[in-house]
Amino acid sequence: MGYEEVEMRVEEDEGCSTPTREEYRIQVGPVPPPPPRKKPAVLPGKKRVRPENGYFEVPDLDMLFAVTPIRRQACA
């Protein structure tokens, strides 16, 4: 192996490299905003008070399940 062969190998290895100058560097973006704050936990000693009239009005069940007669048309 002569001097010329060693010199050629060095040139081949130095052919490709990542640019390191400042103009080629990735710019750092702005800092993202902080995550939203958690809602405060409900204290275990406090209980919710039920509404006096209940949560909703109970419908008349007989009215919901009433059977309506089926009208049949006469055959012509």
Rank of each mutant, 00 (worst) to 15 (best):
F56E: 11
N53Q: 04
P69I: 02
P34K: 02
V42F: 10
T18V: 11
D62K: 10
P36N: 02
V58D: 10
F65H: 02
T20C: 10
E14F: 12
A66L: 01
Y55D: 03
V67M: 12
L64Y: 11
M63D: 15
M1R: 01
A76G: 10
V67E: 04
R21H: 04
E7S: 06
T18M: 15
E57K: 11
L61R: 08
A76C: 14
E57I: 03
P36L: 09
K38V: 00
K46R: 08
V42G: 07
C75M: 15
Q73R: 13
V28Q: 11
V10K: 12
S17P: 00
R37K: 13
E22L: 06
P59G: 00
R21Q: 13
S17V: 09
P32K: 00
R37A: 09
L64F: 13
L61S: 02
M63I: 09
P19A: 06
E23R: 14
P36I: 03
P69Y: 04
V58A: 12
Y55L: 08
E5D: 12
Q27N: 08
P33E: 00
M8E: 14
T68P: 05
Q27C: 05
K46D: 05
E12Y: 08
E4Y: 05
T20G: 14
L43I: 00
G2P: 03
Y24R: 00
K39C: 07
P36D: 07
V10F: 14
C16S: 00
G2W: 06
L61M: 11
E57R: 04
E14T: 05
A41C: 10
P40T: 01
E7K: 14
R37I: 15
R72G: 08
R50Q: 12
E4F: 12
R9E: 07
M8R: 15
D60C: 08
E52W: 04
F56H: 11
F65Q: 09
V67G: 05
D13T: 13
T68R: 10
D62E: 11
E57G: 02
Q27G: 07
E5P: 03
R50Y: 10
C16F: 15
L43F: 09
Y24G: 07
R21V: 05
V10E: 11
E11A: 09
V31R: 10
G29K: 01
T20I: 12
K46H: 07
T18C: 11
L61D: 05
Y24P: 01
L64W: 09
E4V: 02
R48L: 07
V31D: 03
P40H: 00
R48P: 05
E5K: 11
P59Y: 00
T68V: 14
I26H: 15
A41Y: 07
P35M: 04
P34R: 03
G2R: 05
P19D: 03
P59F: 01
K47V: 03
D60L: 11
V31S: 02
P19Y: 02
V42C: 01
F65D: 04
R21P: 04
L61T: 07
R48E: 02
E22F: 15
P51Q: 08
L64M: 08
D62Q: 04
E14P: 02
P36W: 06
S17A: 15
L43W: 14
F65Y: 13
T20Q: 14
V28K: 15
P30H: 04
P40F: 00
R25T: 02
E12R: 10
I26W: 13
D13Y: 08
L64E: 09
T68C: 10
E23Q: 13
K38M: 01
R48Q: 07
P51K: 01
R71G: 07
P35C: 08
N53G: 08
